[in-house]
Design a protein around this nucleic acid. Sequence first.
RNA 1: GUGGCCGUAGCUCAGUAGGUUAGAGCGCCAGGUUGUGGCCCUGGAGGUCGCCGGUUCGAAACCGGUCGGUCACCCCA
Length: 450
Amino acid sequence: MAITSLTGMKDVLPVNQESWLFVDNWQRLEESMRRQGRLYGFREMRTPLLEMTELFARGVGDTTDVVTKEMYSFTDRGDRPITVRPELTAGLVRSFIEHKLYALPQPTKVFGIGPAFRYERPQAGRLRQHHQWSVEVFGSQDPATDAEVIQIGIDLASQLGLNGLTVHLNSIGCPVCRPDYREKLKDHFRPHLGELCPDCNERFDKNPLRILDCKVDRDKPFMATAPKSIDHLCDECRSHFDGVQRHLKSLDIPFEIDTGIVRGLDYYTKTVFEVIYPPLGAQSTVWGGGRYDGLVETLGGPPTPGIGFGMGLERVLLTLEKMGLALPPQPPLDAFIATIGDAARSAALPLAARLRRTGLSAELDVLGRSLKAQMKYADRLGARYVVILGDDELARGEAQVKDMAGSAQHQVALENLAPWIEGQKAAAEAWSAAGDRPETQPENGGTHRG
RNA sequence: GUGGCCGUAGCUCAGUAGGUUAGAGCGCCAGGUUGUGGCCCUGGAGGUCGCCGGUUCGAAACCGGUCGGUCACCCCA
């Protein structure tokens, strides 16, 4: 039996076979998220993958599916119950409390980027190891904060080219108004239990709000008449929800009230939202989150409101793919050093080192290939320039430098190599910035590169 | 945890009334004369046909099981 990766766990590769598993795209996306965090005043936090099981049992909720049947839990060698994090928020909150970050100027705005693990059956857009950008604000109950948190995600998406995504918004109330609403909902469905699907009969006891977004019972007549959470909010929740909507409008962020947005983690209060891209398949939420005003206190901290969301990196990448969009490519290799002869070959390594020290990326032959094979290899690497160095040139302190975009070749003194290449690069970039293509000299036939 | 579909080269896939050494395209490596990429041509490497068992004179193909992939339910990023 071959050793393979585990079910639902993917390798990110240096080849662009599947674009959502291409490492360049991951790097670009993470850069965008960190940049976005900076722009909005968020600081990165890195918390451990492993936490005490109790953190998630209390934080996420010990009746939720995530906790009851999806966690990677085990006891360590000291018989301590340990869990590999199924999401990032609980760990960030734990750290906020443990390090008393509430003593810093408030609010605390933080984010984490990293893997989370859930033991589920994989399907389109769902894995056992997935990655989240988890963005959190602790210490503000202002509806403007809700809007700002929604905005940072929408803003990132539009920078990536993901336009036309709409925010599905709902409010599920708070400990004051939700219990009443739950009872009203159960009163409404109780006479129809026989007509509801088996799943909904379970939901009736466990989480009646979930009946509202059942795919089986969706079209039954008594669904349309079911009481909606937003019609049963307490005064505080009502005005908060109105405030969130007002602020979203002022930011020109399109949203729609979607009373089916319920969320499966216990800590949510008031605002909940999801941003959905239906073509992703059954798992169409690109990111989602909400307010969790009781979570910090539940986990042993001072009463502190909070709000945040988790954005699935895989889902963002899949959405880009579905929309036919590409992240900007990594800069190409600046120079490949092709050598002929033993003396030249041993000179290549220090020469590459010199180029690299000036910030130019450089590669060289280490397989002892023929010049022709080296040229071919340089082409496949996407090198912009090939420095051709034979023993003759080396003796004269020169090299031939070939511009791979065309076919022009220049003699350049070795000591001027780095500045020469820099100059060529700068000139080419200036041309393309001016909107013109640098004319390639059609000396020996045109180029096929694009 | 439940169900549908699918497992042949690195990738995309041909190959079934069961019949010799299992194929193609792309990719990879090398060559197409003196030290030069892209196009083209030639050659090469690479597969226990997912695995185990069964039927058969004979299985990549048929049957059973198993593992893996995929999609959906549940739930979520």
